[in-house]
Design a protein around this nucleic acid. Structure first.
Length: 412
RNA sequence: CGGGGUGUAGCCUAGUUGGCUAAGGCGCAUCGUUUGGGACGAUGAGAUCGGAGGUUCGAGUCCUCUCACCCCGACCA
């Protein structure tokens, strides 16, 4: 993409009303724009990053047998009354149609939709297990939106719901999803800072598991065991007697973290109100046993930006960067255009800074946007029949010959 | 929802005990000079000061109400 055509621009000063690092960088670099508290637009660059993350999650969900659907945001209230959550969830957006006077709910999560949906098709043990997921915007009327895109009121979330004949089958699948989550966060470049964390399980299981990424801007306190690379949420620390549930290590470190994912064993909590039952081999009815598994996409994106940066800007992990290469032309647009075309032809994602701007401005913008590789074309480099290559996270520069450029990136 | 804070041009800010035509920077437009780390000069466009009401000869400035946003806390299947 040509940077001159990008309708957004890098801005020098962060808006007054954003104090969190993720929002400041993401807004300044042109990834997101704030509509109101807790509600953000994804701009072209931001949507590219979002889609990279989404695709990683989709890959992994498909790999554990998830079937993707799309469930609406607009819900009838009777579903929510059926589970008792209409009056229970304080973040529920409720409203009345102006014309028909009918009451609606904007979905904060989708058990109330997916359970009756699966009920229509799963009636025998032969139909189970089944796993359904969707990636969709959720609405939560948070008392206080905060930390940029880490806690919003409207945001995209991947929710996977699994349906099983037995607790044992759920347990097995739950472990599989847990591994899949570890892979997702690794592929998103935050694996090293993300801890599988024991957390409160609610009424139907002893624990749930959260995936907590270490950062000062997080809202949770976790206690990490560095031997096992797992953690315990402070909420349940006394339940595990202040020790690592895996190895018994009592030397845990208290740290702040943000919850980027959460997996739950729901048991029959939602099967019961909707009477989701299957017929077993003996012809008897049994309740379906469920699990649910969520990841907030904007929160994940914000967390990645929050922990991958320096004073100059974002440093995107390669897998989720909007582009692989940022090609800067210092008044060498003819030569640069050729390089750009060749890279595109080779299938490499390039942001090409073809603007009439000073060298300094291009460098500063490039650092802020945070694309992994910077290619520089200038009179100096062309004298050597070369371009300069620099990684965003390194100060080392290297000259490579013009005819080796494409080759260099197809190998990376 | 409790406490604290902030609203002046697209963005960041200044604006004295109430006083004249609301100031500067960024960004934007035009011209010229620049061109390897946010270039320089000149000219120009752009705000009835979050909104409503009030006090006053006179309100960005004082009072009341209200809206929005930020931070701390509470809350977060």
């Amino acid at each position: 993409m040509k940077q001159s055509k990008l309708f957004t621009k890098v801005i020098k000063e962060a808006p007054k009303d954003e104090t969190s690092l993720n929002a400041q960088f993401l807004i300044r670099a042109g990834y997101i724009d704030k509509l109101m508290a807790g509600v953000y637009t994804l701009l072209p660059l931001g949507l590219m990053v979002y889609k990279k993350i989404e695709q990683i999650i989709r890959d992994e969900m498909n790999a554990v047998g998830g079937q993707e659907v799309y469930m609406p945001s607009l819900h009838p209230i009777d579903r929510w009354q059926a589970t008792g959550r209409y009056d229970d969830i304080d973040v529920l957006f409720k409203f009345k149609s102006y014309y028909s006077k009918i009451d609606y709910v904007l979905g904060p999560t989708h058990e109330e939709v997916v359970v009756p949906l699966v009920q229509k098709f799963a009636s025998s043990y032969k139909d189970l297990p089944v796993a359904v997921y969707h990636i969709q915007n959720k609405f939560r009327d948070e008392k206080r939106a905060k930390s940029g895109i880490l806690r919003g009121r409207e945001f995209m979330m991947k929710d996977l719901y699994s349906f099983h004949t037995t607790q044992k089958d759920l347990d097995k699948y739950y472990d599989k999803v847990m591994d899949s989550y570890v892979r997702i966060f690794e592929r998103c470049g935050i694996g090293a800072d993300t801890y599988t964390t024991f957390a409160s399980g609610g009424t139907f299981s002893k624990y749930s598991h959260e995936f907590q990424t270490l950062t000062e801007s997080g809202e949770d306190i976790i206690h990490t065991c560095d031997k096992c690379k797992i953690a315990v949420n402070k909420e349940v620390l006394t339940d595990v007697k202040n020790a690592c549930p895996k190895c018994g290590n009592k030397d845990l470190a208290e740290k702040k973290a943000v919850e980027v994912g959460n997996i739950f064993k729901l048991g029959t909590k939602y099967a019961k109100p909707f009477n989701l039952q299957f017929t077993n081999k003996d012809g008897k009815k049994e309740y379906v046993v469920m699990g649910c598994y969520g990841i907030g996409l904007q929160r994940l994106m914000g967390t990645i930006a929050e922990i991958n940066n320096d004073e100059k800007g974002i440093i995107w992990p390669e897998n989720i960067a909007p582009f692989k290469v940022h090609l800067l032309s210092l008044n060498q647009n003819k030569k640069s255009a050729k390089i750009y075309k060749n890279l595109i032809k080779a299938g490499i994602e390039v942001l090409y800074d073809d603007r009439e701007a000073s060298a300094g401005e291009k460098f500063v913008d490039s650092d802020l946007i945070g694309i992994p590789y910077r290619l520089l074309v200038s009179a100096k480099t062309l004298k050597e029949n070369s371009v300069e290559i620099k990684k965003r996270d390194s100060d080392e520069v290297e000259l490579i010959k013009l005819d080796e450029v494409v080759n260099k990136f197809t190998k990376l």
